[in-house]
């Protein structure tokens, strides 16, 4: 009896602690959002988004950094998505589990763990210096493309794996070539999953700072071409806060960043839910 009681005692204490852990995680999450949004939301007028920063960001808005963020993310997805989806297609449709697929998976897993500052160093020597692209949208975008590659690969591979093998068999049995089977059956069926991966990558690109500041620079001038340097919202936020340029503007930019990331994340989540519900 006594032993029994102490077993249940332990269980109650343990479960209590776990509840505390889970609840405090939620609490901290909410706290982070709340404390930044509380100060930041009042700054977010339409003008804030549509005015370019003036006086190093003390006044005006964040328009040029918004453009910079979009341009950089666009370049990253433009290069990163085809490479990532292509890799996933190769791993799933062109090869069995083999030495080469293991090497590719290992490379992808390793790349996923490389810290962004290392990507920054790499992008700086390779794109900015060696390929002479300077601090630019292109250098930054290509660096980000390398960074998001593992995410795109693993989400695409996952969703291609989930396609019933019979779809392929049917396509081949109707005289489809491999290419036709991939483009007309495999990729369309995997699209929601691939799109989720791309959304997550967009989120990551928007939030990235270390790699971007070393490869795309931090110029507040409105970009005119892919070779223009730019400042993204994250970099702008970092500079405003760290150099104490304007707390008000920092809060505003931070709130805008959070909302953006929140929106993208919710879209990805919605897709995942829909997709999973569709499957089962």
């Amino acid at each position: 009896m006594i032993i029994n009681r102490s077993r249940y005692m332990t269980q109650s204490i343990a479960k209590f602690l776990i509840w505390m852990g889970a609840l405090s995680t939620i609490a901290v999450m909410i706290l982070i959002l709340f404390q930044i949004l509380k100060e930041g939301l009042p700054v977010l007028h339409l003008r804030f988004f549509l005015d370019s920063p003036k006086n190093m960001g003390r006044e005006g808005g964040i328009f040029s950094t918004l453009i910079g963020t979009m341009a950089l993310t666009g370049v990253a997805i433009f290069f990163g998505a085809p490479l990532g989806v292509g890799t996933a297609v190769f791993l799933r449709e062109f090869t069995r589990e083999s030495k080469i697929s293991r090497v590719i998976r290992f490379g992808t897993d390793c790349l996923a763990g490389v810290p962004s500052i290392i990507f920054g160093l790499f992008g700086f020597v390779f794109f900015v210096i060696q390929l002479n692209m300077g601090w630019s949208i292109l250098s930054g975008g290509l660096t980000l493309a390398a960074m998001i590659l593992p995410t795109v690969i693993s989400t695409s591979e996952e969703s291609i794996r989930a396609i019933p093998p019979s779809y392929r068999e049917v396509s081949y049995s109707l005289g489809g070539t491999k290419w036709q089977t991939i483009t007309r059956v495999v990729l369309p069926s995997a699209l929601p999953g691939i799109f989720t991966g791309i959304l997550l990558s967009i989120g990551r690109s928007i939030g990235e700072t270390a790699a971007v500041i070393l490869t795309a620079g931090s110029s507040l001038v409105m970009p005119t071409s892919l070779f223009s340097p730019i400042r993204t919202m994250s970099v702008h936020f970092y500079i405003l806060a760290r150099e104490g340029i304007s707390m008000e503007m920092a809060y505003g930019t931070g709130a805008a960043l959070i909302l953006l990331v929140l929106m993208i994340n919710m879209m990805a989540q919605w897709l995942i839910n829909r997709y999973i519900r569709h499957r089962t």
Binding site: L200, E208, N265
Partner: peptide, 21 residues
């Protein structure tokens, strides 16, 4: 319903936001 999105959000929040907080 709260915890899962909270964890996904923790992953999505940019590191500069954490730093600022």
């Amino acid at each position: 319903i709260l915890l899962r999105p909270a964890i996904q959000l923790l992953a999505a929040i940019p590191s500069v936001i954490y730093g600022f907080w």
